[in-house]
Each structure stands twice: as structure tokens, then as C-alpha cells.
């Protein structure tokens, strides 16, 4: 290959100009803008469930349905309470009649009466939307009807939802369902209207045993954040990589 001096110089200048291009494409921002972009939101909501404290009264489910206008008699709920009964023979029985809305007022579990002597351990686990950092339900939405707000809560746009149900299938925690009245995808949103207004979520307010609490992970002085950072907490289905933001204290390995 021959290369004249003229061509060599030409190419060198062109190459240098091309190399300088990316530097030109950088957008200049004021220091305030840059600060706002790197810091992001000052709020990241997180939920703390203390399963040791839950007695399965179901007042949270009751309050949630009323607060969020989920038809009371419909067999769907944004949050629910599960009862786990582990017996000596190694069997685990789980139930959540009416999503736990009416509490657990009988020892009978799925039509089976269990002798208290046979029970190794039994406990209640409240569940709700995990407001994941990597929400699979949002990834699959074909129309942009569900999304993550800047404070980490996943919301559903009822006007935009086409009711395809992909998100219902995608959620590994099974928290999504169709709203019987609006016919759109529905899920817990941490009572977004309440928490952004300085109120407690309906379930948090209704819980007499402080088994449900909520806090801001970006605030190191928040009592809930302190528990999450300093104590041994667990999340559900960590292996899915969804980065859930509902943290559990005293979670048993039987809980799925």
C-alpha cells in the first residue's frame, strides 16, 4: 500500500478531528444540574415487616381494601396475610382465607384440624408489593402503563393499561391482579397518596402490633432505615434479582 505525504497528513488531521468528536457531544450542565442528576431523589420508600410481631388479625388487609377502594367481597387484595403451620411430620401447611381480611379465627387450616401438640412452629407472614428496584412487571408492560416513580414506588396508569395481563404473570410475588371495577392491572402502591402527603400507609396505621412499618432508605436517621441497615433482615425470592424493598425480620425458610 502506497501512501503519499499529502494523504498521510490528511488522514492524520481527519483522525484527530474524529477522536475529538465525543468531547464535543458532552452536554454542559450547571453545577446545580449536575448535583441534582447524581444525587437523584431524596426519598426511596422501603417497607419493614416484623413477622415475629404479626398475630394474623388481618386489620391491615381490611384497612387496605377500604382505603384503596378494592371491592370488599371480591377475592382479590393488594396485601394479604399468610399463615404457616409446620408440623412435626415435616409438613408445612399454608393458608390465607379471604387474603386474611377477616383474620384467623379458627385453628382449622384448609379444612383440617391440627392438634396443637403436633405443631413445631406456626406464624403469620404479611405480604404486599415489594416495589422492586428491578421490577419485572414494569419490564414486560408493552404500553408503558406501569412504571417506577423516582422515589421507588411502582405505579399503574389506569388510563393507559390495556389489560393484557403480562405484568400479572411476570411478578414473581403474585401481587398483581385485575381490579374488578376498573378492569386494569392493580397492585399495592405503598398507599402513594398517603405517604406523599406525610401520612402512614393504611395497613401501617391499622396494624396494632407495629408489625408493618415504612421508611425512607435515603434518610440515615429514619428508624426503619436504621433497622434495615443494622439488623438482620431478609427479602423474598432474592435469587430473582428483582431487588425487593420489603424487608422481613424473623422470616422463616419455609416462607416462599
Amino acid at each position: 500500500m502506497s501512501c503519499s505525504r499529502r494523504d498521510f497528513l490528511k488522514n492524520t488531521v481527519a483522525g484527530a478531528a474524529a477522536a475529538a468528536m465525543p468531547a464535543c457531544s458532552v452536554i454542559l450542565r450547571t453545577p446545580d444540574e449536575a448535583k441534582a442528576m447524581t444525587e437523584g431523589s431524596k426519598v426511596r420508600w422501603a417497607f419493614l415487616v416484623d413477622t415475629e410481631k404479626c398475630v394474623g388479625c388481618g386489620l391491615c388487609v381490611d384497612a387496605c381494601k377500604t382505603e384503596n377502594e378494592i371491592p370488599y367481597e371480591a377475592p382479590v387484595s393488594r396485601t394479604w396475610v399468610e399463615r404457616y403451620v409446620v408440623t412435626r411430620d415435616g409438613k408445612t401447611r399454608v393458608d390465607s382465607p379471604n387474603a386474611g381480611r377477616d383474620g384467623f379465627i379458627t385453628g382449622e387450616i384448609r379444612g383440617e384440624e391440627i392438634d396443637p401438640e403436633d405443631i413445631d412452629k406456626a406464624f403469620f407472614v404479611p405480604k404486599l408489593c415489594n416495589q422492586c428496584d428491578n421490577p419485572p412487571c414494569v419490564q414486560v408492560c408493552p404500553v408503558g402503563a406501569t412504571y417506577q416513580t423516582e422515589d421507588g414506588v411502582v405505579l399503574v396508569d389506569r388510563e393507559w393499561c390495556i389489560g393484557c395481563g403480562y405484568c400479572v404473570m411476570a411478578c414473581p410475588y403474585g401481587v398483581r391482579f385485575f381490579h374488578p371495577v376498573h378492569k386494569t392491572a392493580e397492585k399495592c402502591n405503598f398507599c402513594y397518596h398517603r405517604i406523599t402527603d406525610g401520612k402512614e400507609a393504611a395497613c401501617v396505621q391499622a396494624c396494632p402490633f407495629e408489625a408493618r412499618r415504612m421508611g425512607n432508605l435515603r434518610d440515615p436517621e429514619d428508624p426503619v432505615t436504621k433497622v434495615i441497615t443494622n439488623e438482620r433482615v431478609q427479602v423474598l425470592k432474592d435469587e430473582y434479582g428483582t431487588k425487593p424493598h420489603v424487608f422481613y425480620l424473623g422470616l422463616d425458610e419455609k416462607v416462599r
Binding site: V85, F104, A122
Partner: peptide, 13 residues
Amino acid sequence: RCHHRLAYPSSQR
């Protein structure tokens, strides 16, 4: 909801 006795060993109930 709270006062039906369920003597569950590992729950405050």
C-alpha cells in the same frame, strides 16, 4: 381476630 386462642409457639398470637 386477636382473641381466638391460637397457641402458636413461634408467634405472639
